[in-house]
């Protein structure tokens, strides 16, 4: 019995070491930080489940380099030309809208989400917690 407990302990320790490697190597964010959501934010894992309309709030040059598949580019500089594309997409299929920028520290997605809430008051709009990196 003691031997089995020893084996089980060894497996648990190795599993925890592996999980620590995932966190410290940047493969995943720590699960305890995943719960710190501000109002109007959503985790990527939850966003992918609701199959939203993605809005890329980063500069257009970053959007051209890489973006989430199907995402529309919308930021302060291209607002007037792009907002109608987004409105059209939302009217055609009124799904939730998730706005993302490049990292947890960028604030653009929150600002764009806030601005969108004024233009599309009936839409369900979130900003992506932690941002998106290609």
């Amino acid at each position: 019995m003691a031997l089995l407990i020893k084996e089980l302990t060894l497996i648990c320790v190795l599993t925890l070491l592996g999980a620590s490697f995932s966190i410290f190597s940047g493969l995943t964010q720590p699960p305890w930080s995943a719960s710190e959501l501000e109002a109007g934010e959503i985790h990527q894992v939850d966003a992918e489940v609701i199959n939203p309309i993605w809005v890329d709030a980063r500069p257009e040059v970053d959007y051209e380099t890489a973006h989430i598949e199907g995402a529309l580019s919308l930021n302060d500089s291209n607002w007037d030309s792009q907002i109608f594309d987004l409105m059209g997409a939302w009217l055609e299929s009124p799904q939730p809208i998730v706005v993302y920028c490049s990292s947890a520290s960028c604030d653009t997605s929150k600002q764009i989400a806030e601005r969108l809430r004024m233009d599309l008051p009936d839409a369900e709009i979130y900003s992506l917690h932690g941002g998106w990196q290609p």
Binding site: T28, Q29, V45
Partner: peptide, 29 residues
């Protein structure tokens, strides 16, 4: 792990933040 967390959520049995712990620990186990 994020894609795996999405698959776990699809089963509609556990949700954040527990789903992130499972997506982190289960593959290593």
């Amino acid at each position: 792990p994020t894609e795996f967390a999405v698959s776990i959520e699809g089963f509609e049995l556990i949700h954040s933040p527990l789903v992130h712990w499972v997506a982190l620990l289960l593959p290593w186990l």
